[in-house]
Amino acid sequence: KDFRLGLITPPPHIWTKAAEAFGAELKEKSGGAHSVTVFPAQQLGNEAEMLQQLQTGALDMAFMTVAEVSNRAPDLGAFYAPFLASDISHAGRILRTDTAKGLLDQLPAKAGVVGTGYGMAGLRQIVARGKIDSAADLAGKKIRITPFTPNLDFYNALGAAPTPMPLPDVYDALANGQVDAIDMDAELIWVLKYYENADTVLQSDHMMFPMVGLVSAKVWAGLSEEDRAMIGEMMARHVDGTIDSYVAKEQPWLDEIRGVAKTYKVVDASFFADAVAKWNTIWEAKAPATLEALRKAAQDTAQ
């Protein structure tokens, strides 16, 4: 069978490369019985549309942000607890715990997809027009975010106006002031040159940004036991490989940005005043068990 695998990232991105490597290995190990056509750069639609296509079985596989999946399985939102991970490699260790893996068990029932394993992108930073000296400077500002509840809750707690916006529009929106700041990872800040239109880059490392490898539950149900085992293991290994890529590259990207940014600030949880506490209160009500389990996993993997 030729599987269609969709993702939102452009061809040179780490996730797309991982998808292609997965396809190549699957073709080889199955002796040509299976192959994968990768559709990068939102060719088949944005993540919400791809998730729906996975549910109907029109799309077979996807590498997708946990953010999108958490719109259907809300307790996955606990991954986005501000400052849950102390740095990028800690985030990777949290994602490799059994606690994290166990959270994927609910996906077939809640979202119609099978989660094979986690990958990741870089930690979230903030790039802003104008000077940002304290969290108060972010209040009332329009901030571009990836739209999912935990992120919305964080910026609402800061008193900002979180604005969802697709990636291709972000550069212009920041350049012409349609938004005052953006929530973004180091890779894209560097590669897409968002620092060019910014007065302040805040290295806040405030959230991790996990990704998950998905197979349509309908398609999964039609696979043989051996195929499930082979595909599940192989996809998990390739998405997991992206964690190592980001752990290795995060610091070099940050160093490059520091070299060109007008103002570069490293801040921690205390910078965001009571916004972190507000977020915690909201989510201790929304997903108490998952949040506690992930905090414990974070503690166990701290160094």
């Binding site: 639609g45 549309e49 729906q52 109907t56 529009d169």
Partner: peptide
Amino acid sequence: GNTVLYASFAQKMFSGIENYG
């Protein structure tokens, strides 16, 4: 023969113009 796409057809028509520009 990919008739499973019919279930996404109306949604795709909607989302094709869900665009700020």
